[in-house]
Simulated assay, not measured.
Amino acid sequence: MKEQLNKVLLSYDKSIDLGRKGIDSYSNLPKEIIHNPNYNLFEEMKNENNLSDSGRKEIYEYLSPTTTMKFIDLGCCLNLMFRGYDKWESTYYGVDISPKTIQLLKEYTQIHNISYGSLFSGSMHQTPYEANYFDIGCCIGSLEYFEKDFVKVCIEEFLRIMKPKGKFVLDIPNVGSAEFEITFLIEKSLGREDKFNLSILEFENIICKNFIIDKKENIGPMIQYFLSINK
């Protein structure tokens, strides 16, 4: 799994480097992807800002952040910059495998005088936080890169750092959908191939041991879960 973690790290570091130069990492895709019959679905999702579902108002409404809450964003990418998380009332904590992502976020918070709890560069399966530390949390657009055993370890870590009766939002790929099939090809071309190998039933059997599924929704290539902590 170290190899896969490193591939994801390098791919997102490269995306940050390109972004600093004003280059969209999705702008130079291979011809076989552009000519894929499902490529129009990708373009529609991109035009509708639906490639990442981390900025949905439903997440904010479900987590209901307040000034007394600590919020953990696992696999945070640039949510603080582009998904409105800098406007949330809660105290923000971000974890991302890409050091260049975390560096950019620190620069952003300094320029805009945004306070936060911490920004940590590392894997979401081993975080530096105490048990029962966070009131609310999310993991959006990250679990799809990993196989069953690693996903299970991540879920255990999420549970460890979340407070009893806290709330958490995460997503997994809707494997088999046309939307996921085209995004799978694109992510692979970017050097971060999706490795998720759990069925929906298998995944729900894992999370239902300590999470209550309040609702779930199909969003683009993903299935988004709204969860209450039950420990």
Rank of each mutant, 00 (worst) to 15 (best):
Y108R: 04
F158Y: 11
E157D: 04
Q103E: 06
F120C: 05
K100W: 08
T109Q: 07
L159G: 05
K106H: 07
F150Y: 12
T101M: 15
S115A: 15
G166H: 13
G141N: 02
C76G: 11
G94K: 00
Q126A: 04
G137N: 08
G75H: 00
L104W: 05
G137I: 03
G166D: 15
G94H: 02
Y145N: 09
F146A: 07
N113M: 06
Y145D: 09
R160P: 06
G117N: 11
K148S: 03
M81R: 15
D86N: 08
Y129R: 10
Y85L: 07
I102F: 00
S142D: 04
Q103I: 09
D86V: 02
Q110S: 13
H125G: 06
V153L: 12
E147M: 12
G84N: 04
D135A: 11
S90T: 07
D86F: 07
E144I: 12
L104F: 07
F71N: 01
K100V: 11
Y108P: 02
S90N: 08
Y116I: 05
I102T: 02
L143H: 04
Y133V: 09
M162P: 04
L143E: 01
G75N: 05
S98T: 00
I136M: 13
G94S: 02
T127K: 10
H112F: 11
M69V: 11
K165G: 11
C139H: 01
G137K: 14
E147P: 05
H112R: 14
T127G: 02
K87C: 02
I102P: 00
S115C: 11
Q103G: 09
M69N: 15
G117T: 03
M162A: 10
S142Y: 01
K148T: 07
F150C: 14
S121Q: 01
I161Q: 14
Y133D: 05
S121F: 01
L119K: 01
E147Y: 06
Y108I: 09
Y108W: 06
